[in-house]
């Protein structure tokens, strides 16, 4: 036995493999099935999807109204299904207000629109603190908001997921929708960055 065998990651990897084998032996599932499911669970999930929604809202006021009124239906117009059963609510940043999302209880997140969540989103530090001291937390991300900007923190749940509609950067009037899409970052969609 080498020292690597004692590493916690090696131990858990071995237990996961053993469970897979056990479930195959019991006929509960097959390894091939699992590979397929792993591929399917992340395919099509990307922050580029959220970016497309934002760029459309910036360039089409009617779409923006629909997006803010019913996020679930509006993203479906662009071909994105965000969760089978959850509601998507899109919250708009303005000159006076800034929004940021969290899931204090665990890790709820609009996966299809934002891609896999970053580790910090699932961390105890982010989950516990952003609802108590959002200004300090945003500063840790390098986002220093003016004192008079009102910050709203949205706590996701099993039923409702949130996405931030960031402010459109200045001097982008001549940009196409596709070019605007390229400006939108994952953290801006969470609210831990501006553009």
């Amino acid at each position: 036995m080498t020292s690597a065998d004692h590493h916690p990651d090696t131990l858990i990897a071995r237990r996961v493999r053993r469970l897979e084998t056990l479930l195959e032996e019991k006929g509960v599932l097959s390894g091939a099935q699992l590979d397929e499911i792993i591929d399917a669970s992340l395919s099509g999930a990307s922050p580029a999807n959220g970016a497309r929604v934002v760029a459309r809202a910036w360039t089409d006021p009617a779409y923006k109204s629909r997006l803010l009124a019913d996020g679930t239906a509006a993203v479906r117009e662009l071909g994105f299904m965000e969760g089978g059963f959850q509601r998507l609510r899109v919250v708009e940043n303005t000159d006076e207000t800034h929004n940021v999302i969290v899931c204090t209880l665990c890790s709820c997140y609009p996966l299809r629109l934002l891609g896999p969540s970053p580790s910090w989103y699932k961390s105890e530090a982010y989950r516990s603190r952003v609802v108590r001291e959002p200004r300090a937390v945003l500063a840790e991300f390098g986002l220093n908001l003016p004192d008079d900007t009102e910050i709203t923190v949205w706590d996701s749940s099993a039923e409702t997921r949130y996405m931030v509609l960031p402010r459109r950067p200045a001097d982008t009037d001549s940009m196409s929708e596709a070019e605007l899409t390229g400006l939108v970052t994952r953290n801006a969609l969470i609210g831990t960055a501006e553009l």
Partner: peptide, 16 residues
């Protein structure tokens, strides 16, 4: 844990 104190700074490392 929402609002609980003592978890320290956030590791904001960008991981994709």
């Amino acid at each position: 844990i929402g609002g609980m104190q003592g978890f320290g700074p956030i590791d904001t490392t960008e991981d994709t």
